[in-house]
Every structure is written in C-alpha cells, then in structure tokens.
Simulated scan of single mutants.
Amino acid sequence: MLSKHSRGDGHTDPYADFWAPDPTDGTWRDHLADLAELFAPRVNGPQRLSFAAAVLSLILVTAFLSVHTAPRAEAAPAAPVAPAESLDSLLERADKLSEEYRGELRDMEAVLEEAEAAKERADATRKEVDEAREQVRYLAVATYTSNGLDPALSILLDPNPQEIIDTVSIVDHLSHTNNDKISYLLEAMERDEKAQANAEEKLEEAEADLEELEERRWEVRRLIAKYPVQEMTPPDNLTPRTRQMRDLIIEKFGRNDENGGVGCYRPNGGWVVGEHPKGRACDFMVNAHGQMPTPEQQAHGQAIADWAVEHAEDLGIMYVIWRQEIWDIRRNDGWRRMADRGSITENHYDHVHISMF
C-alpha cells in the first residue's frame, strides 16, 4: 500500500494531502486489530513477547474496550442550533441593502459632480476677475501717463484738447465698466465658492452614510457566508455563498469580459479541482487565449487574489489558486507552491481560481 504522500514512482508528492480527504479517527476495532498485530508472532523477527507482556496487553485491551464501549452522559450530540434568520431572509436583506447602497452611491456621485462644477465655475470666474483687474490697471496707467502729464494740464497744453477729453472719457467709462464687471464677478465667485463648500460638506456626510451602510452590508454578508446548508440554485447553479463572492468581485473589479470574463459552474470540475460542479468555485480570467498574462493583466489577477485572501474569513472562501500557488485558509501557512500541471491554464497563470466552503 502506498503512503499518503507517495505518487507510486518512488517520489513524494508534498501536495497530495491537500487533495486527500481529512483523516478520520480509527474505530475501536481498528485499534484492537493494531494491538493484535503488535503482539502476533513474526517470521524471522523478534520472538513472541513474554507471558507477562501478553497478560499486560490483554489488560490494556480490556481497559481500552471498556472505555470505548461504556456509555457516557455527554455522548449524545447536542441538537444543532437553527440560524436565527432564514437564508432567504438574509438574501432579501442583502438585496435591499445593495439597492440602498447603490442609491446612496448615486447621490454621492451627484454631490461630487456638483462640487466639481462649482469649483470649475469659481476657477473660471476667478480668471475673469484677474483679467478685468488687469484691464483696469492698464487703463489707469494710460490715463495718468498720457504725454507724461496730468490730464488736466494736458488739456491746457495740447493743441487738440477735445481729443484728450474724448480719450479720458472713454478711459473713464471703461474703468467704471470694468470695475462694475469686477464687482459682479466677485459676487459670482463668492456664490460658487459657497456652493463648493456646501457640496464638500454634503460629500463628507454622504461618505459617512456610505461607510455605515457598507458595514451593515458586510454584517449580512458574513451571516450568508456562515449559513450552514447551502444548495445550488438557479439560474447559475451556484450556492448563495459562491454567488455573493462572485458578485462582490465583479462589483469591485469588473467582469473583464475582454480577457475571458468569469466562469463558475460547469458539469466537469477539471483535473483535481472539483468544486465547480458543486456550484462552489469561480474562475476569474485575466487572459482569454491561454497565454502568459501581460503585466497589466497579471496586476489585475493579483488584485483579485489579494482581495479574496483578505476577505476569505468573512465570505467563506476555502482556498485561492493563482500563478501555480495555493492559499488555503484551513492551513494557515500562506501561499504554497504547487506541482507543475503542464500548461498555463492548468497552472492558473491566466486566471484566479476561488473555491468556497
């Protein structure tokens, strides 16, 4: 019989136990058989144990059997505690919270647009004020430096005083006009700055509301993830726990359809990875052609893998496979290298695989 880690070719597979079922405790019959083998005579081996040792072994076996066969008061398993809320109710709450969240998000985006528009108006008005002020300064200089004399003296000394009077009148009119324009622009700019300040204040309130709402969403998500019995349901043949994980990743990172999109349920689970037919696994593609991802595609996959590890406990994620490495929440030992399966896709270089409990 091959050992647990043996591949049958004389080499040891350090990852075989990951795919093997968890070991179970032996029954009392197994332990008794082991003891019988221990004390049985061996060919070309050590002689049979002494009579005293045999008696001792019989005593030990008898004691062992009495312990394992005697009824215990606490042997009856406790009745499972029913969840306080049904799964359908949790899912309905999650949908309502998501709808509320999307509404709050739309409101916040509207406030953000309002703040940006007010800032742009204020900046444009400020530019007009600066231009008008520059014109006033230019006209003032022109008024008092004409011919290097004060305008009153210029009228007396210039051979054509009417021309000077006309020029001064025009300059004075333009100065007053620009000053009026400046006053109007300053008032408009003040209004826009107040609008921007109000929008930014509303934005802070909206962000606080979103944070509070998001925390409520995560409370419901955790309850859904921990719900004990979850069956595959239409229309996508996924468990609610898996569907929740998939939708959250799509919400945060997009479907990425141009690079292969997202695939979850399929009748054939593929080599070793068997959660797809159970509706408990999804693949998030980063390259649709079975080629080594570009740096940008790799960064996208890495972001998904990191996010999945970060939220594994909250969402009921069992393990993540990415770039020929596996992270398993049951082992608590970080990312581990996996054996080469022969291709970019089978080694999970072109997609992130996430399996759920």
Rank of each mutant, 00 (worst) to 15 (best):
R221Q: 11
M189N: 06
N198A: 05
D166H: 15
D158W: 04
V220H: 03
T143M: 13
S146L: 14
Q196M: 07
K181S: 15
I182S: 04
E163A: 08
A142C: 10
I155V: 14
P159F: 01
Y144P: 05
R221G: 02
D166F: 12
L153Q: 14
W218L: 10
E212G: 03
L223S: 08
S154D: 15
D209Q: 04
I182N: 01
A140G: 08
L156A: 11
L157H: 03
Y138S: 13
E211C: 04
L174F: 10
S183A: 14
E201W: 01
L185E: 11
A195Q: 10
I165D: 12
K181N: 14
R191L: 12
Y144W: 09
R221Y: 12
A199I: 05
I170W: 07
W218S: 03
V141C: 11
N178H: 12
I164D: 11
N160M: 13
L156K: 07
E205A: 10
L186P: 04
R222M: 04
E187L: 04
E215R: 09
G148E: 06
E215N: 13
A225R: 00
L185M: 08
I170C: 02
A197G: 02
N147L: 09
L153A: 10
A195D: 13
Y138E: 14
S146W: 05
I182C: 13
E212R: 00
R191A: 11
L156S: 12
I164V: 15
D150K: 07
L174W: 06
A188C: 10
T143R: 09
A206M: 08
A140K: 11
N198M: 01
Q162Y: 03
K194Q: 11
I155F: 06
N160V: 14
I224C: 02
N198Q: 14
E200F: 00
L210W: 00
T167Q: 15
N178E: 15
